[in-house]
């Protein structure tokens, strides 16, 4: 998939410039957005997902411009899966119902078909035993895996994930990343904000590095890890990789 950003800037009402003139073009299968906390990574992901609008600038996916108008955005969101850092499942629905809701109420599947799809996917990712559990009865890792199942059940053309493992301990992080890797091999396009440098390096073909709302560096992830061009990325990698990956 090709993504193009042209001069994307986001200023929140408190005059803080969260994103400052981000422009790049990349062809990717899995794109990782990395950088220090508070740098605007999540905001960028929400703009790509059509959850918030940029103050100025354009975003193109495979050459199609995203029109930041509610009538268009609702269609845009329906073609995209979005997974939040945590708490993204509907509290009042169990795992199976969470997966079924968008299928039935947004994509027009019958209840029976939606249930079949939900059960098949939950089974595939080892969640069959948990399908009748409510979000607060699931572990953090299970919650995230159900959230990913819900996002991919509607066959999105792109899956966006906002730090999907940052609230999890290492073991649970492993199970979520393994699932993402499997989906990637299925041919699903992924953009994720992550602090998991091992995953960014090995499972993502492209990387963009954002510092203080600016795009500091981007390109092949292999290259960025081995030969960072900017001092900022070199020092960031030094800090996060200090204890190895």
């Amino acid at each position: 998939m090709r993504i193009e950003l042209a001069g994307v800037t986001k200023i929140f009402t408190d005059e803080k410039k969260v994103l400052d003139n981000i422009s790049f073009i990349e062809d990717f299968k899995a794109l990782a957005i990395i950088g220090p906390s508070g740098g605007g990574k999540s905001t960028l992901l929400r703009i790509i997902g059509g959850l918030i609008s940029p103050t100025t600038g354009d975003v193109f996916l495979d050459g199609n411009k995203i029109i930041f108008d509610e009538r268009y955005l609702i269609q845009h969101r329906r073609q995209i899966g979005f997974v939040f850092q945590a708490k993204g499942l509907f509290n009042h629905l169990n795992a199976q119902q969470n997966v079924m809701l968008p299928l039935v109420n947004v994509h027009g599947y019958t209840k029976a078909d939606a249930q079949k799809i939900a059960n098949r996917l939950l089974a595939r990712f080892g969640l069959s035993a948990d399908k009748h559990k409510f979000p607060n009865e699931l572990s953090g890792g299970q919650q995230q895996r159900v959230a990913i199942v819900r996002a991919v059940a509607v066959k999105p053309k792109l899956l966006l994930l906002d730090e999907p493992t940052s609230a999890l301990d290492p073991e649970l992080t492993g199970e979520v990343l393994a699932m993402l890797n499997e989906l990637r091999y299925d041919g699903l396009n992924i953009i994720l904000v992550t602090h998991e440098m091992g995953f960014a390096k090995k499972a993502c073909d492209k990387l963009i590095f954002i510092v203080n709302g600016r795009l500091a560096e981007y390109g092949d992830s292999e290259r960025l890890f081995i030969r960072p061009h900017t001092a900022e990325l070199a020092s960031f990698l030094n800090r996060v990789l200090e204890w190895g990956i």
Binding site: F90, P102, V106
Partner: peptide, 27 residues
């Protein structure tokens, strides 16, 4: 109602009326 519930409703493509009926009111 946590803000993430509304954001999740938006992300899966629910319309405002559906969000009220399927997510907000039941909770």
């Amino acid at each position: 109602i946590e803000p993430t519930q509304l954001e999740a409703a938006k992300a899966v493509g629910l319309e405002a009326g559906q969000t009220l009926r399927l997510v907000v009111l039941p909770q």
